[in-house]
Design a protein around this nucleic acid. Structure first.
Length: 424
RNA sequence: CGGGGUGUAGCAUAGUGGUAGUGUACGCGGUUUGGGACCGUGUGGUCCGGGUUCGAUUCCCGGCUCCCCGACCA
């Protein structure tokens, strides 16, 4: 896309009401716009990154047999009363409203109850199991305190998957499969090296729930990590855990982390509460086994910004970058150079490379500063000089490495490979 | 929800009981053109409601907003 057509623009200064690095950079670079505390609009650049993240998650969820759907945001009070989660005393993040014709509705902060109720329509027998469904949904939570930019908002996008099983063994097997899929996802997002499956509160030792924590200064949790053994323990259960694992506390490194995923095994509790059953082979009515699997999509975006940004701006891993190449055209007042740059833009685009083309009539310094701030992985500079030499200057955002490549070399380098894997 | 702070132009900031200044961004004219250049010129502002006062952006009360710490996070 041509940058001159992009309606957003960058800012030199961060807004005074944002302290977190993620929000400051995302706003400065034009990825998001703040609507109110804890609520952000996704601008074209931000939406592209979100869609990239969703794409990776979608591929892996499909790979484990998940079927994508989209539940509604408005939810029925009765469903949540069945599990005693409608009351504000039990769940303190509800947004609720009244229907004009009378009656209350809730705005979905989670979807276990509606999903289970909906699935009951289709799951009647052991033959219908297992079933696994997922969605990318906007969750609405009336947080007492939004904080950390987009990391903890009142409105955010989450991928939530739910799997239903006839037996505990089947659930456990699938649970493990999804756990592995999650590790693949975080690796592909570029977060693999710093993301741990943690022992946390809530029955970690019975393997009933796991958290996926990414080491990150902006996170809200505290982890004790053993990098060599790839073990991380949530502070909440530190004492128990070190005992269980046979470790010494001083072998562990204390770090801050952000929870970007979690998986729960509900067993048959939820089904029992809601009366969700299936007919077994023997003809008995048995409660369904349920597990849920979440990934904070918006939060993942925030974590990626926090982790990789440098003093100049954002640095995207290639797998989630809004564009692969930032084509920066210099000397654009020279018709020959401009035509040449336009031509390269057309060629790259036709070859399927995602290019943001800075075709603006702006000064070099401004273009480079913007390019650094926006954080696209590769900057290709075209100027009178490079045109004359028949090579393009290619700068890798992450490392600052500079190369001079011919058009052919350039195309070979940036040709989409089909699947995007994190090559770290 | 408890505690602390904040609110001046699109953004960032200064200042004052007597009708608000700067930077940036934006418009126009000109010089520039490989790291946010420069000159000239122009547009644009005191969160809301009360109170005190001859006069309030400034002081007082209330509300709202946003930020931080804590609590919470199924």
């Amino acid at each position: 896309m041509r940058q001159s057509q992009l309606f957003t623009k960058t800012r030199k200064e961060a807004p005074s009401d944002e302290v977190s690095k993620n929000a400051q950079l995302l706003i400065r670079a034009g990825y998001v716009h703040k609507e109110m505390a804890g609520v952000y609009d996704l601008l074209p650049l931000g939406l592209r990154v979100i869609e990239k993240i969703k794409g990776i998650v979608r591929e892996e969820m499909n790979r484990v047999g998940g079927q994508e759907l989209l539940m509604s945001s408005l939810q029925r009070k009765e469903l949540w009363e069945q599990t005693d989660r409608w009351s504000d005393e039990t769940v303190d993040v509800w947004f609720k409203s009244e229907l004009a014709v009378g009656g209350e509705v809730g705005f979905g902060w989670s979807h276990e109850e509606p999903i289970m109720d909906m699935m009951q329509q289709y799951v009647a027998s052991y033959k219908d199991l297992p079933a696994s469904v997922y969605q990318f949904q906007t969750k609405l939570r009336n947080e007492l305190r939004a904080k950390s930019g987009i990391m903890r908002g009142r409105e955010f996008i989450m991928k939530d998957m739910y799997s239903l099983h006839a037996t505990e063994e089947d659930l456990n097997e699938y649970y493990e499969k999804v756990k592995q899929a999650y590790l693949v996802i975080f690796k592909r997002l570029g977060l693999g090296a710093d993301t741990y499956v943690t022992f946390a509160s809530g029955g970690a030792f019975t393997k009933f729930s796991h958290e996926f924590q990414t080491v990150c200064d902006a996170g809200e949790d505290v982890l004790y990590v053993h990098r060599g053994k790839n073990i991380a323990v949530n502070e909440e259960v530190l004492d128990e855990a070190v005992k269980e694992l046979g470790l010494e506390k001083d072998q562990l490194e204390k770090v801050k982390s952000a929870e970007i995923g979690n998986i729960f095994n509900f067993g048959t509790d939820k089904a029992a509460q809601m009366g969700i059953t299936f007919a077994s082979k023997e003809g008995s009515k048995d409660p369904v086994f349920l597990a849920s699997y979440g990934i904070g999509i918006t939060r993942a975006l925030g974590v990626i910004v926090e982790k990789f940004a440098d003093e100049k701006g954002i640095v995207w891993p290639e797998s989630v970058a809004p564009f692969t190449v930032h084509l920066v055209g210099l000397n654009s007042d020279d018709d020959a150079v401009r035509d040449y740059t336009d031509g390269l833009y057309t060629t790259l685009t036709e070859e399927g490379v995602e290019v943001l083309y800075d075709d603006r009539d702006a000064r070099t310094g401004e273009k480079f500063a913007d390019s650094d701030l926006i954080g696209i992985p590769y900057r290709v500079v075209v100027s009178k000089k490079t045109q004359e030499e028949g090579r393009f200057e290619v700068v890798t955002r992450k490392t600052g490495e500079v190369r001079f490549l011919t058009e052919e070399e350039l195309l070979n380098d940036f040709m989409p490979t089909g699947t995007e894997e994190d090559n770290d």
